[in-house]
Design a protein around this nucleic acid. Structure first.
Lengths: 151, 151
DNA sequence: TCGAGTATTCAGAGATCTCTGAAGACTCGA
DNA sequence: TCGAGTCTTCAGAGATCTCTGAATACTCGA
């Protein structure tokens, strides 16, 4: 048992494009593509042929953003991890933080240039757009959560 | 005339977090914060204190994704550029390509694992989610475009 | 066609990021 | 308390990315 399948590596690559660390993305892909319910750090290390340090870092980061979770492992000293239910919505919400940052950057710019300057008007358009997204995107995600898993 | 203001640099940093090259982001910020209608490559070079090569590359890339545009410059041999109307919606659409990539990666995974395997079910959830976004996000942007600039 | 002004390209220096692997910390049963 | 098994940390090697600046190409009026 070793090496991720091609589709798994491909998925990892896609996650990478979204800004995720490469090894972190591969760890997530491993947890997605395994036929087991959970994987341990040791299993992942072996599967991906990467250092234990990388696995540790990746698991820590994925856990902290809520994409995976530790599973109580009766009768095992090793920690078991699994992909978390509803994680995709979580990932999306994470990325929406960028929308907030953009809106705030616009706000800050307007404060500096004044609402009625040339730049102020450009930044006003920006602020309005990100403000709109900031209000509408959470609603979109909630709607998804509401109707279960079928769109 | 030199150096971007702090709010402008801050905005550039935000763009960077969204995956934009640093110098490209600074060029875009310069075009956003200027009180002039347009800027030339030379002006930007001077303003940001960066090489002409960087400016050229940045302008090329920003133009190609539709965030800025060349403006016909009567009586000037230099090229004039300005931030493009509706550019934010364009930027958002660009980023939505990632949603498509994610959906396709899921699809590919399901094709490999089979719909009814453990992994297949996880990937099914993923596919459904990104499929949902892929259908809904363009609608959201269109709605924004429809009601002008006030949300 | 010429030449001044402007824009583009790209090799390579430098900055940055990522991963490894070994040292050390932690955990838990005995 | 001890020690085997497991996990975490982090300095530094190596890989990657970014920017510069000089050479080159382009453009346009005369």
């Amino acid at each position: 048992m070793s090496a991720l399948s091609d589709p798994a590596e491909h998925l990892a690559l896609a996650l990478t494009q979204g800004g995720m660390q490469r090894m972190t993305a591969r760890v997530l892909a491993a947890l997605l593509f395994t036929e087991q319910d959970t994987l341990t750090a040791g299993e992942i290390t072996e599967l991906l042929v990467i250092s234990s340090g990388s696995v540790s870092t990746a698991l820590k980061s994925l856990t902290s953003v809520g994409l995976i979770e530790k599973v109580p492992a009766p009768g095992s000293r090793r920690e078991h991890f699994r992909f978390r239910e509803g994680a995709w919505a979580t990932l999306m919400s994470e990325q929406n933080q960028l929308v907030r940052v953009m809106r705030e950057a616009a706000e800050q710019g307007i404060a500096a240039t004044g609402e009625d300057s040339v730049a102020g008007r450009r930044l006003g358009e920006m602020r309005d757009f990100y403000d709109y997204l900031w209000r509408e995107l959470p609603a979109l995600i909630d709607q998804w959560k509401a109707h279960g898993s079928k769109g």
